[in-house]
């Protein structure tokens, strides 16, 4: 794979899969990959705890983006997991010797090129390997500006960590891509699916109802000032730290809507993109308010934070309802 060129992206998973598709001759921007995988979501699951904090996600769980996108487009992708680290390392070497571009799931903690303060035990990071020089692997990590190298020792360690979301050496490569993409079909299908995730989830912890649930939780937040600060900081970290493209993926999705508007020649989607940008801005206002309130932990204004979050929920609900109307009108016209 000598022709591979590294391209920075905002999110690791959509970045890796769009780079893989581009390398196989299918033009694909990162926001388009993200949107077509209907990856935007919200979930607040207090029962599932990671490092003592409840699970808060702004997108679908790891691997859903890759699998969802490939299924929707008809891309054939080959996933392999390994029990034995040595078998996993040999399989990677084989694939690279055949000139394949390989995606890997790894831990963040054991990748030496990550900034020290960003290294946590998060096991569902994605990166690309595009070559090997002795025991130095050439890595294209989509969230970094430049490609880098990692030694075999560190890479194997990062691929075979145990714990939640253990990668088990997961490696994947694209087998075949379709000739063309029928945007007229796949874009409405992806948006339709995303509306269902955000508005119609059967549990009140997912989608717009999940955002409201979190707002209610903040309104009656208890515990020591430090606990409160860590909980609020956790929400902001999930929203802004590495690979969200800002405001919990809302700006990536707005970019997708804009691209879709041009492809389908649909001014409604252009308007939806503007609304989604405003939604993203309201999320960032919330993060800003959290940072401000955390500076005065003694008299934190919970009601204010909850109110900001509720307005995020309301803005989003309106956006998805508008998109649902657009889909309905579209079906009527096409009939």
């Amino acid at each position: 794979m000598t022709s591979f060129t590294h391209q920075q992206s905002a999110h690791c998973e959509s970045g890796v899969i769009s780079a893989l598709l581009r390398a196989n001759g299918l033009p694909m921007s990162e926001p388009m990959a993200f949107g077509l995988a209907n990856a935007l979501a919200f979930a607040y699951i207090p029962l599932v705890k990671l490092a003592g904090q409840p699970l808060i996600a702004y997108r679908l769980p790891p691997q859903f983006i890759i699998k969802g996108l490939c299924k929707r487009l008809g891309v054939k992708i080959n996933f392999r997991r390994f029990k034995d680290p040595i078998a996993g390392a040999l399989a990677l070497d084989d694939a690279l010797d055949q000139g394949q571009l390989v995606g890997l799931q790894t831990s963040v903690y054991y990748l030496p090129y990550f900034p020290e303060e960003m290294r946590f035990h998060f096991n569902a990071h994605n990166l690309l390997v595009y070559g090997r020089d002795g025991d130095q692997y050439q890595i294209s990590d989509p969230v970094f500006e430049e490609p880098t190298t990692v030694s075999a020792k560190h890479l194997t360690r990062a691929r075979f960590v145990r714990g939640p979301l253990a990668p088990k050496g997961l490696m994947y490569s694209v087998e075949s891509v379709p000739e063309t993409i029928d945007y007229e079909t796949v874009i409405p299908a992806a948006i339709d699916r995303n509306i269902k995730v955000m508005l119609g989830a059967p549990l009140p912890i997912i989608g717009v109802r999940g955002i409201r649930f979190l707002a209610r939780k903040i309104a009656k937040l208890k515990g020591s000032p430090q606990e409160q600060r860590l909980f609020l900081g956790h929400i902001v970290r999930m929203q802004e730290e590495i690979g969200t493209g800002g405001a919990g993926f809302r700006f990536i999705y707005a970019s997708f809507l804009q691209e879709a508007a041009q492809l389908l020649n649909a001014p409604e989607l252009e308007r939806a993109s503007t609304t989604m940008t405003e939604v993203g801005d309201s999320w960032r206002n919330f993060a800003l308010a959290v940072a401000k309130e955390c500076k005065q932990p003694a008299n934190m204004d919970h009601a204010l934070l909850a109110q900001l979050l509720l307005s995020c929920a309301e803005n989003e609900r309106q956006l998805w309802l508008d998109l649902r109307t657009w889909l309905k009108n579209r079906k009527v016209v096409n009939r």
Binding site: E117, L230, H234, V236, R237, E240, E241, E259, A287
Partner: peptide
């Protein structure tokens, strides 16, 4: 929409450093 590089945001950095 365009891609813009950011060298950091104090709000995010504060949350990370807290953790």
């Amino acid at each position: 929409y365009t891609q813009v590089q950011s060298s950091g945001w104090d709000v995010e950095a504060a949350a990370t450093q807290d953790a």
